[in-house]
Design a protein around this nucleic acid. Structure first.
Lengths: 214, 214
DNA sequence: AATAGTTAATTAAACGTTTGTTTAATTCAA
DNA sequence: TTGAATTAAACAAACGTTTAATTAACTATT
């Protein structure tokens, strides 16, 4: 049995398998992806996947763990920051989410599929809990702004749903994006800085006019 | 071989199988659902599924066909309506989508999963095309409003993405909704008129302040 | 109205694949 | 030489699908 060796070789290989798996999960879903698919894409022997991760499900969990830790913690810091106004905090949150989602479209497609379904109850609940925590975090910022009367009386969790929902909707299909960016269907809008800026501008303008009195 | 009999008995049974399949597809995804699952849920013999539909994939297509025709055509009529202002049309569109999505959460979860993945290329492309058509429809209304200077200069396809994205985000998880509606996790918010009204109010207010000068 | 004939509906069982996983043997590195 | 890494092969289970046999429902004929 393999016991978390620190050999750089095998760590690279594990990462390599995780990346191949993530791409396939995003493209074909968890059940739609076979271990043989993953092994072929990562160009390793079939048995190596179970050797390193124990099972397909544990590989999935390892992949979520690795990609999730990659982007944790930043948002919690924002909430207690005394230097920023509520509006600035909202802008930072929007920027952070747009940046993260567009930089890791595959991962967020996987998570979204996981939240839509309710297979793998443990994983599902974990994703839900992270989302609830983020929403509560956002809510308390909005509510402070409402108390200070710099924000209108809005529905905080639904405002958050609109921000995340807009980005997710863009992630749902590359092809749809390209139609409205005037690009060919194979183009990748997510790495296009111009497209990112366009999305950011839209969300900020929409949320600003929703939040602010004028 | 079965050849589209008009006997009411078998039509009922086909519908019954389709409904069971849709619920399972929404819950577990296409690949995560076996024909044996479907047969068990519909309480019919395993072989009946292939007898009626030919294959699992054709059952899926039949299900999409049936549920999609159920809600086609209404939006196209709106666009050419001369009696309504652009803002009224936008409101009608929002109402129509909220109503449809909340009335058929399972179906829209299935479609969303299908759009996220790119398995079953034909199905995927079909869903994309419908979405593109709806977006173009929406765009032309917004652009008329901009020309008439009743709307601000916004990004029409992204405004549409925000409307649909918000509703989808709500659909993503019943559990998350219930946390913010103060209900227990098993409650069904989608059939709750109060929750529907709340979602409708949020989207309308947000889109209004984004579109209108004041 | 009863019956024979025909087709559709339904069933349990089996088919060949593919699935995730394991084994046992081999190669490689320290 | 020892233990990890890697391999091809095999495993049982689950999968979508098909078969062949049986039951039910309908039609036409008497």
């Amino acid at each position: 049995m393999h016991l978390n060796t620190t050999s750089p070789m095998s760590v690279d290989k594990k990462d390599h398998i995780i990346n191949a798996a993530m791409e396939l999960f995003a493209e074909k879903g968890f059940e739609g992806t076979s271990i043989r698919d993953i092994a072929a894409k990562a160009d390793v022997n079939l048995a190596m996947v179970n050797y390193y991760f124990g099972s397909k499900e544990k590989l999935f969990e390892a992949m979520v763990e690795q990609k999730a830790t990659f982007m944790r913690g930043q948002l919690e810091a924002l909430e207690s920051d005394k230097e920023l106004t509520e509006l600035e905090k909202v802008d930072r949150i929007i920027e952070a989410y747009v940046d993260r989602f567009l930089s890791n479209p595959g991962f967020h497609k996987v998570i979204q599929q996981e939240m839509l379904k309710s297979q793998r109850e443990e994983m599902h609940q974990k994703a839900i809990n992270i989302f609830i925590k983020n929403t509560q975090n956002f809510n308390s910022i909005i509510e402070k702004g409402i108390k200070k009367k710099v924000f209108k009386k809005v529905d905080p969790p639904l405002v958050f749903a609109s921000i995340i929902g807009t980005i997710n909707q863009v992630l749902v299909s590359k092809k749809v994006c390209n139609v409205f960016a005037g690009k060919d269907p194979c183009y990748d809008p997510y790495t296009d800085e111009h497209f990112k800026k366009r999305l950011l501008t839209h969300i900020k303008q929409m949320i600003h006019s929703h939040l602010l009195n004028q």
